[in-house]
Write a protein that binds this DNA or RNA. Structure first.
Lengths: 143, 143
DNA sequence: TATCATATTAGTAATAATTACTATTATCAT
DNA sequence: ATGATAATAGTAATTATTACTAATATGATA
């Protein structure tokens, strides 16, 4: 279960994720890695993605309307999900985190180890494409 | 696709979710509804859960390690996921939301329609069961 | 109340995503 | 180089969910 031996395939998967900013599915990673390892199997990709996620070297993101996605960024951050194109963007909320966790922890008898914020909406690209709608600054939309 | 006619099965599913505080999977709802409608099919449960989620009458929650879960609470709130037993608890963060969304929106050219916070940790029940570990107030754990 | 159009269902088949299995290969310590 | 075994490729199996279809339920209208 734990990693005990190096493998070129796993290293390639790790590097692939580290070098991209989108949030690919296992299949997208598979198609990419096949350029270097034409015989790699999808199962190998899945196994290594799970493994790397367990080790905290990548992050696994579950979405309600499709396959899981993976994120090569190690340090904790948040995500934005576009309801138009389905893309996932990274958000870095500075410092609010502690406030969040502290507030949630008040009177809670369990233990909170971490948290992540999921934002939903329309990404910049899709918003621009929506002709007929005037593009206004984001802050006007805030409730 | 839209709801145009009443159905007793759908109403039963809606009530079932409204009357419980856990966050059941489609299968758990199915098993429950079968007490009232022994012939209801799992597909019917799935279809109505999707439908109700689209209408905003229930909420669908995706988790990384199992089937989707459903939540009968209509008003927006957050969730806590226990890494021990897999249970999902509701959290209501008072008012911090606006701050979050405003902060995320700064300089973002897309549109943010909503957000939800996911907390991870160990639930109160599991924490108590972990013998050998002293139970301390949650606030000591906050980073 | 009977009739009709059609939304919804039960039952089943199909698909999508992911995991499990196994013989072969790669890694690494000796 | 050799041996122990972790990891892989290829494939089968499982899980979660959706799609399909004939029969039924709903609700409007006569």
């Amino acid at each position: 279960m734990a990693v005990e031996k190096y493998s070129r395939q796993r290293e390639s998967i790790r590097k692939n994720l580290a070098g991209r900013r989108d949030h690919p599915t296992a299949d997208m990673v598979y198609l990419d890695i096949r350029k270097e390892f034409p015989n790699i199997s999808l199962g190998t990709v899945y196994r290594n993605l799970s493994l790397l996620a367990q080790l905290g070297e990548i992050q696994k993101i579950s979405v309600s309307d499709g396959p899981d996605r993976f994120d090569g960024r190690t340090k904790p951050h948040d995500h934005f999900f576009c309801k138009e194109c389905g893309c996932v963007l990274d958000f870095q909320l500075t410092d609010t985190d502690n406030r969040l966790q502290r507030q949630a922890g008040k009177g809670f008898e369990g233990r909170i180890d971490g948290q992540t914020v999921q934002f939903f909406g329309v990404c910049p690209d899709c918003l621009k494409k929506q002709t007929g709608k005037v593009h206004v600054s984001n802050e006007n939309y805030i409730l």
